[in-house]
C-alpha cells in the first residue's frame, strides 16, 4: 500500500495522539458520561488506523505487530473474565460479576467499583481487536491485489 502526501502525514502525526488521548478520556469517564469501553476503544483504534492509512509504506513492518495485538486482545479479554470471576470468590456468596470494590461517591472519577476497571479492559481489548481486524484486512488485500 502506498502512503499519502507529506501534508497528510504531518497532519496525522499531530492529530493521532490527540485522538488517542480523547479515546482514553472516553474510556476513563465511561461510568460518568456517555461512552465507555467500546466507544473509547474504537476511538483509540481509529488513531492507529489513521496512521496506517497515511503512512501506507509501513505496512510490511506491521505484520509482526499483528500477533502482538492479538496477544494483547486475548490477555485483555481474559482479564475481563478474571475480574468478573473474582466476584465468585470475593463476594462471599459466589456471585458472578459482583461489584466487590468500594462504590465511592457518585460522580467522582474513582467510583462505581469494578466498572471503571472493566471499562479500561474493554477499551484495551476493543482497540486491539479493531486494529487487528483492520491490519489483517489491509495486509490481506495487499496480498490479493499483488
Amino acid at each position: 500500500m502506498k502512503g499519502m502526501t507529506v501534508i497528510v502525514k504531518k497532519v496525522t502525526q499531530f492529530m493521532a495522539p490527540v485522538i488517542f488521548i480523547f479515546g482514553i478520556y472516553v474510556v476513563l469517564n465511561g461510568h460518568l458520561s456517555p461512552g465507555g469501553g467500546f466507544a473509547g476503544g474504537v476511538i483509540m483504534a481509529s488513531a492507529f488506523i489513521l496512521q496506517i492509512l497515511a503512512n501506507g509504506e509501513i505496512l510490511d513492518k506491521l505484520r509482526k505487530e499483528e500477533s502482538g495485538l492479538e496477544f494483547l486482545e486475548s490477555t485483555a479479554i481474559l482479564g475481563f473474565l478474571v475480574v468478573a470471576a473474582l466476584g465468585l470468590l470475593l463476594s462471599g456468596s459466589f456471585v458472578f460479576f459482583s461489584n466487590f470494590l468500594k462504590q465511592g461517591v457518585i460522580g467522582e472519577l474513582l467510583s462505581a467499583g469494578i466498572i471503571p476497571l472493566e471499562n479500561i479492559i474493554v477499551g484495551t481489548e476493543v482497540c486491539a481487536a479493531i486494529a487487528t481486524i483492520f491490519i489483517a484486512l489491509v495486509v490481506f488485500k495487499d496480498e490479493v491485489t499483488k
Binding site: E70, F71, S74, T75, I77, L78, L81, A85, F96
Partner: peptide, 12 residues
C-alpha cells in the same frame, strides 16, 4: 466461564 477462559488461555 470454563470454556471461555480455556479459549483465551489457548490464544495466549
Amino acid at each position: 466461564i470454563v470454556p471461555l477462559a480455556a479459549a483465551f488461555f489457548m490464544a495466549i
